[in-house]
Nucleic acid binder design. Structure first.
Lengths: 159, 159
DNA sequence: TATTGTTATACTCTATAACTATA
DNA sequence: TATAGTTATAGAGTATAACAATA
């Protein structure tokens, strides 16, 4: 019983620590978490209309406008015309943006190794499997909450 | 090599999912993450001066003023005089605040169980041990970055 | 009519600096 | 002099709603 609580508590602790570590690695570039997240997706997707980024980041279109404004002003991305849709703009990584993301990818790989340094192959495999199981349960919870959220809110509002 | 990457990537995914799930559970109460965090600490510490809360949450005193303002306006906490130091105010949970935190504690326990539901006792124990190892490495990284951060920033600024 | 992106507006979290009242 | 909390100011992230240009 207390063992289960420990897993969640450890995950919450790790959540905080990971964010601190990521924030530290951004400091040197002047980037923030939200802006880096956008760059990271852009590297994965290639040049994209803002609408695609809004969907990928699960964030409003207005929010993307602001993030791209800031990233454009600091030289990490550029806006260009969409080849076929004149309503849309294509956001692309600049050379600086691409270089920054490459460096971040290296740091990501280093952190991956450091996190499990000293653990045996089999322990790492077990850990990965356990995390996959936890992630699967969380995915189910979050997805199902989409439909339950409204019902719950109504329930409590009436009580 | 790719196994290590999987552990970090899983943790990052879980980080996002956990925050979504927590946000969902706040929705019903009208609380936000930052305000709930304050209430959670208050429940642990008991009635506290704002300065103690600033230290516990690792956040500026100004920030605490804003959070307590909002929580006071919505009835979750109350401000009272400090018995011996007339400069300080004592922040305490109201009956609503205490009731809300009790409910949240129950949800926390339920989530703990759901996360590892279906896993055997020994798997859960292994998972907890693996997470403890990862957390330990992260703690070391974040602590050491405190002194390294300045040096790294200088390095990159010069290159 | 529907979609893309922007302007307008607003709220939350966060920080630093200056100031007041007390220690 | 130092500390607790507030006011003043600022910036980042987020959201909804109204609007223009284009599909």
């Amino acid at each position: 019983m207390s063992a289960e609580i420990t897993v969640l508590d450890r995950l919450l602790e790790i959540t905080v620590l990971l964010q601190q570590d990521l924030a530290r690695s951004f400091e040197a570039t002047g980037l923030t978490l939200a802006r880096t997240h956008l760059l990271w997706e852009l590297r994965r997707l290639g040049p994209s209309p803002q609408q695609s980024l809004a969907t990928a980041l699960k964030v409003s279109a207005r929010n993307i406008t602001g993030l791209v404004d800031a990233l454009e002003a600091t030289g990490f991305v550029s806006r260009g015309p969409h080849p076929t849709d004149r309503r849309a703009t294509l956001v692309a990584l600049t050379e600086l943006g691409a270089r920054t993301m490459s460096a971040m990818e290296v740091e990501h790989a280093q952190l991956s190794e450091q996190l499990v340094a000293g653990l045996s192959e089999s322990h790492v495999a077990q850990l990965a499997a356990g995390l996959e199981a936890v992630a699967e349960r969380l995915r189910t919870l979050v997805e199902s909450s989409g439909s339950e959220a409204a019902a719950k809110a109504n329930q409590r509002a009436q009580s």
